[in-house]
Design a protein around this nucleic acid. Structure first.
Lengths: 135, 135
DNA sequence: CTTTACCCTCTTGTTAACTTTAGGGTTTAC
DNA sequence: GTAAACCCTAAAGTTAACAAGAGGGTAAAG
């Protein structure tokens, strides 16, 4: 009880069974324990992990990068702490850059929607490139 | 004068000649005028356009989605204004969601880098998933 | 005036990230 | 107890997004 079979996990993560097995072969999710018949039995935190993968992918991270993100952990051992911190900071910079660029796009799109069908100035000629150009 | 050949354009956009020709076949950039010998001659705004494509791709938009973003323009005709606004708003929602999720990741990463090698609490066991779970 | 760096088209190859197919066993609902 | 729904592996197929190669013109520097 409390275990999820693969179909249940895929339903809760907007994935499908094949993708989950694929992620397992790629090392993105741990091989779970199996039932007597060989069925995969996942615990609840698999849902978190898979959802993280799905979200990170939507952000434009490759599976290789997602693997790196997931590998980030500060252990008690503390021996690899320097590398971890280094990697985390690199990824942090990546993410901050993405946020900034997305904010620019958002502003440009807001200009477009504001200029469009907004009343008097509705007949303006405007593209996302123009909106971005106009800072 | 004032025209760029393909090599010049690729240098200014972190792309390469093959990619630019590929984007042309896919309709992401307009077929430019040609020299007598058949060389592509780009104008300066090609640089803007290609850079936009590059940035949007880094954000996790597919070429198909980039095409949609680039097609967003409010024309004087005003006939398609409703659709344009609709599409722009959909993309805007996409982008805003991405920003929010990236901000969550950023916060989680900041927690990791703060906890790591930060002095007294350096021996804490911490992963990005934990950091995300802890709100 | 020729060598070196560019450019062209067309075809084929590559990589990532799945998806589908084939050929089976297992669980569960009637 | 038998269908329908679910699960397994292994291998082949697919799609997006390029990259590379073949074979051949063009531009510009010495």
């Amino acid at each position: 009880m409390g275990y999820l079979r693969i179909g249940e996990l895929s339903k809760r993560t907007e994935t499908n069974n094949e993708t989950l097995r694929f992620y397992e072969t790629k090392g993105l999710i741990d091989a779970p324990r199996r039932s007597e018949a060989g069925y995969r039995l996942y615990t609840a935190d698999a849902v978190e992990r898979v959802n993280f993968i799905v979200r990170a992918k939507r952000m434009g991270f490759s599976l290789k990068e997602v693997t790196e993100l997931l590998s980030l952990q500060v252990e008690e051992s503390d021996s690899t702490c320097g590398e971890v911190k280094q990697l985390a900071e690199t990824k942090l910079a990546d993410i901050e850059l993405k946020i900034i660029e997305l904010e620019k796009m958002r502003d440009a799109l807001q200009k477009i929607t504001a200029a469009c069908c907004g009343g008097e100035e509705s007949a303006v000629h405007c593209t996302i490139l123009n909106a971005l150009a106009a800072h």
